[in-house]
Nucleic acid binder design. Structure first.
Lengths: 226, 226
DNA sequence: GGCGCCATGCGTACAAGTACGCATATTGTG
DNA sequence: CACAATATGCGTACTTGTACGCATGGCGCC
């Protein structure tokens, strides 16, 4: 048994069972060892999940869009992280547990800073913009995940419906555009970052899905991010 | 024993002990009853924390700024929620566990929608703007809380310092301004929402603290939002 | 070839949330 | 006042993460 073999097994478990069933004990059973044996190879459960999530991130983060198309590339990068976090409760858990400094996360950050730099932002402005985008993305994913599967209690009136609209893919795109707009207008040298027409002027929502949403969204496993 | 008395005791406990020590068992001890007895009055621990957090929110959410000063009022509203969430792990936990529809939360939402409406946004645009602001605020607080108390592992290089800057009060203000800028520019009729000069053009940070930060920040108790 | 040491696996135990169902108390009804 | 129905407190037990320390096995060195 080695750290790698433990992480491998954990990865398989995460991909094959609802998050609520990913426990140290079930993992140990899968490896046919006693639960406490795992702790010779990982510091604790979060350490283990961190490794697994790094692999998922490495496989999913990179946008397919042309990096020269700055706005679209940034939008897709945010969209991909959001998708991963909502789709994989383990990933959200890791992102909410502390700063993520795994290799893939650092590569992603560097790539985004690079693109923001090419948009005309200096190093400081790029960092600020990245931080704002990242915060918004993780925040949105956290709220969306915690809401999915939520049934409005019978006591709430129309409020519930109102809240549901807060965590739609369209709303994510809208907020992202606000941010990109604001970032561009704060930086004199920045070219126009947002791509395409306003994703929803003032008409009803359902008009069109988010520009780069990778088709259908699935839900899986337990949501509760805590 | 009644629901109210349980919530009262829980509130006292939350205010007097680190979050990690706020347990059903310690609460039961405080009330001098058996742990399971509490479950006659609250659905589960989250239900209980929800009540407590509503009280905290009710006491803290309302900005002192003049609501006519739209940008400043909105900024302070966001700042106050951020402060509460970072300061009180219980509050963050609740906000990350599901939609918060407690009375104070609904009052706050209505007030914000109202101010956004006065800024010239129609109902739909106001909702979108509110959702974006709310997402950003909760997201920022979640990241800030999970980072506070974090010690960069000796292996990380300058990355750690870079990350630290992501969750400073200044950075919160910067991102908020991006959003308000973007919101204003997306709505033809909207007056200028952001207040005052750019909170940090491209020079070094320390220029000035967030406009309405309520003085000194404290930290208390365990942070891990899990 | 023998001996000691560290790496590795694990048995036990504890604190947390809470499901389940019993027992007592309280209230409503004739 | 007697009895039923309901409300309330709680003992027990299960699941989870993980601290602690024992035990064994393989490896080095003489």
């Amino acid at each position: 048994m080695s750290r790698d073999s433990v992480v491998d097994a954990a990865e398989r478990l995460v991909h094959s069972r609802p998050f609520g069933e990913v426990t140290i004990r079930s993992l140990a059973a899968q490896l046919d060892v006693a639960p406490m044996s795992l702790y010779r190879h990982v510091r604790d459960k979060d350490d283990l999940l961190g490794e697994v999530v790094d692999r998922m991130l490495a496989a999913e983060w990179e946008p397919a869009a042309d990096p020269a198309d700055l706005g679209r590339w940034l939008t897709e990068a945010a969209e991909r992280l959001r998708h991963l976090l909502v789709d994989q409760p383990a990933a959200l858990h890791v992102y909410l547990s502390g700063p993520v400094v795994s290799p893939a996360a650092l590569r992603r950050m560097d790539a985004m800073l690079d693109v923001l730099g090419r948009a005309g932002l200096d190093r400081t402005a790029a960092r600020r913009a990245y931080a704002a985008l990242h915060t918004y993305t993780v925040g949105f994913a956290a709220l969306e995940a915690s809401r999915s599967g939520w049934r409005p209690s019978p006591s709430d009136g129309g409020t519930a419906a109102e809240l549901a609209a807060f965590t739609s893919p369209e709303q994510f795109a809208v907020g992202l555009r606000y941010l990109l707009d604001g970032i561009a207008s704060a930086s004199p040298a920045a070219g126009h970052l947002p791509t395409g027409p306003d994703p929803g002027g003032r008409s009803t929502p359902g008009g069109r899905a988010a520009e780069s949403a990778p088709s259908r969204e699935r839900r899986r496993g337990v949501s509760r991010p805590g």
